[in-house]
Design a protein around this nucleic acid. Structure first.
Lengths: 190, 190
DNA sequence: TGACAATGTTACCGATCCGTAACATTTATC
DNA sequence: GATAAATGTTACGGATCGGTAACATTGTCA
């Protein structure tokens, strides 16, 4: 017997979908498996989300909302201190790379959406731009000599960490992401 | 009428498969499409390669052989000069990220093989270890203070560049990979 | 030219997957 | 308890995909 209160099916389906999309990729998991993992069924899934593409879109939007909240949390936790916000960002990014349930599906999914004519593709590209602009502003506020290049470095590192974590796991280079990223930050702020 | 000399079907199939695996992912392309792109047919494909998994394996082995040749080329071009070899490696890695027909399918494919019980999975993991050991030795020979961490940084950067290139294209951070990586190298060798 | 190997063509099987239809069951609201 | 909405179950259709069988065609070499 399960003690946890059962959420409505829509939430359970979204949660299961985000988890499975992240683990197996968008094309790597079927709607039947998602519905079963959500302890629901395919019919209910299609009544809430008209298609698999729509479900993908909803998952991405929810992940984006969480990323927004996470960003606002960092800004609120270190009011006015850009350098502290930047270091906090690195630390949180490191957690998001290695911790199981994270928002990483955003960019991971984007890579799969490139070659496909997926309705969520434009949405992801706009998000990517937003995150970049935000981070550039933060680096500039922190006093970075070349904020654009600094964001390039951080972007490559965090995307690489995610890829490496997925393929190499805990024994790979991704576990040292924070160490490397902090070095880069110090380097650019020096 | 085509002027180019037609290779035997086996080579054409391998070339087409490597190209399409890289573009669409292993699960993203079917054997029919590969055979057609190779200007051949599915029957001939299955007579040369017993299964799609075998074809994947052969493609990975060929890409690994090319990576070996590329590595030996760097060592031969800068005999005895570890620092020059390292800078050459960065430059070549940058080309491999953005140039079309490259060996990048190795690690890209690895990420897809993780969750699948694929026969080539162990092969890819051994390759990853080999490349890491090689690069660590090179960094150590070049006088890196912390060769292990330096390889972590370079690994994350190059994997991130590949991911970013695939999803963001020429306008993304991947185009500045060489600039960032050279900075890292200088940083670790200082 | 004849014979044999390699390659191409067509059709098919079984499995999987997205999506839908029809009907049964549970849950909530009055 | 009655009614209606939400959810669950079963079955199916159409498409795709990995893989195979049978046969036709081309190329090669004696």
């Amino acid at each position: 017997m399960t003690v946890a209160v059962k959420c409505p099916p829509r939430e359970r389906i979204i949660d299961a979908a985000r988890d499975l999309f992240r683990k197996h990729g968008i094309k790597g998991i079927g709607v039947d498996a998602i519905a079963e993992a959500a302890d629901s069924n395919k019919m209910t899934l299609y009544r809430h989300f008209g298609s698999k593409d729509d479900l993908v879109f909803v998952c991405l939007k929810e992940a984006a909302a969480e990323a927004d909240a996470f960003w606002e949390g960092i800004k609120a936790a270190n009011p006015g201190d850009a350098k502290a916000q930047l270091r906090d960002w690195v630390r949180c990014a490191g957690e998001f790379v290695t911790v199981e349930h994270c928002n990483c599906e955003l960019l991971d999914a984007a890579a799969q959406l490139v070659e496909i004519d997926h309705p969520a593709r434009q949405f992801v590209e706009e998000l990517r731009n937003l995150y970049r602009v935000r981070l550039v502003e933060l680096c500039r506020a922190a006093g970075a000599a070349d904020a654009e290049l600094m964001v390039d470095a951080l972007t490559l590192l965090v995307e690489g960490a995610r890829t490496n974590w997925r393929s190499a796991g805990p024994g790979g280079a991704a576990t040292r992401f924070v160490k490397v990223a902090e070095m880069i930050v110090d380097d650019f702020l020096a």
